[in-house]
Amino acid sequence: MELKEMKSKFIRQAVTSPVTKQAHALAQTPPQTTLTAFFCLCQEDDFARSLLYIEIPTYYTWSKQKQWVRRKQGRIIPGHDIKASNAISRAYIVHPNNSFYLRLLLHTVRGPTSFEDLRTFQGVLCSTYHEVCASHGLLKDDEHWQKTLQETSVSRVASQIRQLFAIMLTACEIEATIFAVGEIQTRYVQRLSSSNPTAK
Rank of each mutant, 00 (worst) to 15 (best):
M1K: 14
K7Y: 15
F10T: 06
F10G: 05
R12K: 15
Q13C: 05
Q13D: 14
Q13W: 14
Q13E: 15
A14D: 10
P18N: 08
K21Y: 07
A23E: 13
A23F: 13
A25M: 09
A25E: 15
L26A: 03
L26Y: 07
P31I: 03
P31W: 03
Q32H: 07
T36W: 09
F38V: 00
F39Y: 06
F39D: 00
L41T: 08
L41S: 08
E44F: 02
F47Q: 03
A48R: 04
S50Y: 05
L52Y: 01
L52N: 08
L52S: 02
Y53A: 08
W62E: 01
W62L: 12
W62A: 05
S63I: 05
Q65V: 02
Q67F: 05
Q67C: 09
W68L: 02
R71S: 06
K72R: 14
G74A: 12
G74P: 03
R75T: 09
I76R: 01
I76P: 01
H80P: 00
H80F: 07
I82M: 01
A84G: 10
S85W: 04
N86Q: 14
N86H: 15
A87Q: 11
I88H: 12
S89A: 10
R90W: 11
Y92R: 07
P96L: 03
S99R: 08
L102S: 06
R103W: 06
L105S: 11
L106A: 02
R110L: 03
L118D: 06
F121Y: 14
F121D: 06
Q122I: 07
V124M: 04
C126T: 11
H130F: 14
S135R: 06
S135M: 08
S135T: 05
H136L: 00
L138V: 01
D141A: 03
D142L: 04
E143D: 10
Q146M: 11
T152E: 07
T152L: 13
V154G: 08
R156F: 15
V157D: 15
Q160A: 15
Q160V: 02
F165E: 05
I167R: 15
T170N: 12
T170I: 11
T170G: 00
T170W: 02
C172D: 03
C172W: 01
E173K: 13
I174N: 04
I174H: 10
I174W: 05
G182C: 00
I184A: 01
I184E: 01
Q190C: 08
Q190W: 10
R191M: 10
S193T: 13
T198Y: 11
K200L: 12
